[in-house]
Design a protein around this nucleic acid. Structure first.
Lengths: 344, 344
DNA sequence: TTGAAAGCGCTACCAA
DNA sequence: TTGGTAGCGCTTTCAA
């Protein structure tokens, strides 16, 4: 931690005996500079331990190289994969992800977006299609490409990469119904905190209605039920209240696993006594015994697709109007032993 | 996406009929400005949709508000918790985490650090105590506080928040030995890619030596063995090669769970036929049946402690020399049913 | 290929 | 409490 001031370009220029403009060019690629001066300047820069100040460079070029991203939680394998896809997809375009977490709060999202905008990102990515009014305005007026991901908003702000969470819920209900289950429950909060989880719940229950099945076997909670622990205790309550339940859909694979463990502890067999399915294709669903049926929403490709759209939007000559892309990610039902119907 | 140029302070100043200097003050707190002009300026800013350019502000104040952080992988609950602790601890000081992933590669770490330095962070946090020579030099000469976390480096660069991974391995070996297990195996790569996992392995095997126990029952792999899937297949091999193994330590809770599932699939009882312990206190270890013995390294508090050190170092008047803090995080062995020794 | 001047948007500093 | 001036470190633009 040497605390003397960091050397600047003109320090390098002085040492190399050239102008700072020449240093600027020599240190970048794709610029005109003779090999000889390039080497001389590189040597001077190394000697001084010079590090480019991209803050100042950005002020001049009006390009920060940032892409702002908000996700509900960093501690979630699905969002982590999306961020990984984003990071990798943006790297080749020399764009860096600037990440913020909203904790599933729209108010926090608004605050985060406001803060991120001050960093002058070249694009903004947000999770979901529901935002506070102020937040929507910030995004719409930001002047840069916006991508909403992980959902299919009714009125998109700009680009979209996602899938219908309501349809996802319906798909799971249809599958369980087709497997022959009739007394079907749902574990997952009924509050709109986790907007997308709530949409899946709505789609699921609507589908049960459509099939003429009972739809009262759900877990009442005003909190999202996403963790293993929450799934485990939700299943305990469900078994008490509706011991005749045959199958349960859970808001995530993690809560599905927790629910399954409650069954195991109580001596119930999965799927014979209780069928269970989850959501999100987390590792756990493919490695538990029995493996858990789930819906793979391809979290990684949500990230790579989003990156692709951003790179395309930024490389387009700013002249032509950039048309909003709406990409619907294909979901894939992974049918596994946890929902096998015993033929009777 | 209105694409006209973003309004600047002087635009706001013009509209409000004041100088841009007054706008600058009015928009910040803790500055002198009359309530009347403040309101007038705020109104003008709102009307124009003005957003502060913190890039330019940073150039002037020489403070970016960034803390650069590198972690091996974003898709890892332990590191995610650390980042969460960091984020929360830095928020009150108005510092924002700028995150990069190294993929467990020292070379990638070097590249990431080099890139992050160009953003002029006010502090840098890296994972582990082993770095490339160049990377060490970058960090040491960065001129800002550096924190190495998740390990206890022999020769720290500056601050440290971590624990001894080697000691952690020893602790687990000692525990298994005390439980009465004698034929003990280890699942986890033997390559130095995951430096900290490798240290745990070394500590573990050395302890077995010290107890006079056989130490050949380990999984040979030049890759880290951290996932559920890797743990599962490693256990398959181990059972083939050393069917008499009584207990196994795994490099992470995830691979421990995978290993346990292999046992379940093969009809082996845990812990009666095979005791298993993991590392990291991931959710899975506390929610599986049986629950898995693990070492809790308090990933969250590694983050909060690191944040505390950074905030302290930055708030100190730059006059007095900032002494390097070395904080050893206390690890906690969580003894669970997966390692219960059947009294015989 | 190189250099000089101007300016990116903001704030520190000093003066009114 | 307010405003003018200068400058943060870099790149754009134009000229040599």
């Amino acid at each position: 931690m040497s605390s003397k001031k960091a050397p600047t370009m003109s320090d390098v220029a002085k040492l190399a005996g050239v102008s700072s403009m020449t240093v600027s060019r020599a240190l970048r690629s794709g610029t005109s500079a003779s090999a000889k001066t390039r080497a001389k300047i590189q040597a001077a820069a190394d000697e001084l331990g010079y590090v480019l100040d991209s803050t100042a460079a950005g002020l001049s070029t009006r390009k920060t190289g940032f892409v702002a991203v908000t996700i509900p939680s960093i501690n979630n394998a699905n969002f982590a994969q999306t961020v990984q896809g984003l990071t990798e997809g943006l790297r080749e375009a020399n764009l860096q992800v600037l990440l913020a977490y909203t904790g599933y709060s729209l108010q926090e999202e608004e605050r985060m977006v406001q803060g991120l905008l001050q960093r002058r990102p070249e694009a903004i990515v947000v999770t979901g299609g529901v935002h506070s009014d102020k937040c929507r305005r910030y995004l719409a007026e930001s002047g840069v490409p916006v991508v909403e991901m992980w959902d299919m908003p009714a009125t998109p702000i700009n680009h979209v990469v996602g899938f219908s969470n309501k349809q996802a819920g319906k798909t799971m209900a249809q599958f369980l119904q087709q497997q022959g289950f009739r007394k079907i429950g749902f574990i997952g909060g009924n509050a709109a905190i986790d907007v997308r989880g709530y949409d899946r719940r709505r789609g699921f229950l609507e589908a049960l209605d459509a099939y003429g099945l009972e739809r009262h076997r759900y877990w009442q909670s005003d909190q999202p039920v996403l963790t293993m622990e929450e799934g485990a205790s939700a299943m305990e309550t469900l078994l008490e209240q509706y011991p005749d339940t045959e199958a349960v859909m859970c808001a995530s694979d993690l809560s599905a696993f927790g629910a399954m463990m409650t069954c195991v502890r109580q001596g119930l067999s999965v799927p014979d006594d209780m069928a269970i399915c989850g959501f999100g294709a987390y590792d756990i669903s493919g490695n538990s015994v029995p493996e858990i049926t789930t819906l793979d929403v391809s979290a990684l490709s949500i990230g790579t697709e989003t990156a692709r759209i951003i790179v395309a939007a930024l490389s387009k000559d700013n002249k032509e109007p950039i048309s909003a892309e709406v990409v619907e990610i294909e979901t894939k039902l992974l049918v596994r032993p946890s929902t096998e119907k015993i033929s009777s």
